[in-house]
Amino acid sequence: MKVSADRIADLAARHGEKPGALLPLLHAIQDEMGHIPPSAAGIIAKALNLSSAEVRGVISFYHHFRTEPSSSPRVEICCAESCQSMGSEALLAHARKTCEVHPVYCLGLCAVSPAMMVDGKPHARVTPEKFDSVMKKAAS
């Protein structure tokens, strides 16, 4: 735990000078550690001269930030209208049988719906069969 606390303090020092540093800092922490550890809020608050409540408030407001490690691989399936019109509800139901799925609202791949991201890699026109083959590849 000590290592990550030091690292968070390092990142806070590096990003702290920017105006509106909190979001870039939270991104930097999550990109590096996979999530924002619960202990981070206090360290960030001190570094950026904010209250711990303000930092926690920001972390909890944004869907992108998570305070626990994500499932691996991270599967995000778009559940917005465009993907719904091409069967994303059935895809979601299929995917949930085998893994943890995070619904997202639009990946900007609406002309090739339904879409999903697996560990940041986009996939389009995802049928249940294609989903299975993508997941098989991701596991190997």
């Binding site: 917005a80 465009s82 609202y105 639009c106 900007g108």
Partner: peptide, 11 residues
Amino acid sequence: DEGDSGTFADR
């Protein structure tokens, strides 16, 4: 922050 479903012009 192009969040609308059905849009991808910005992207």
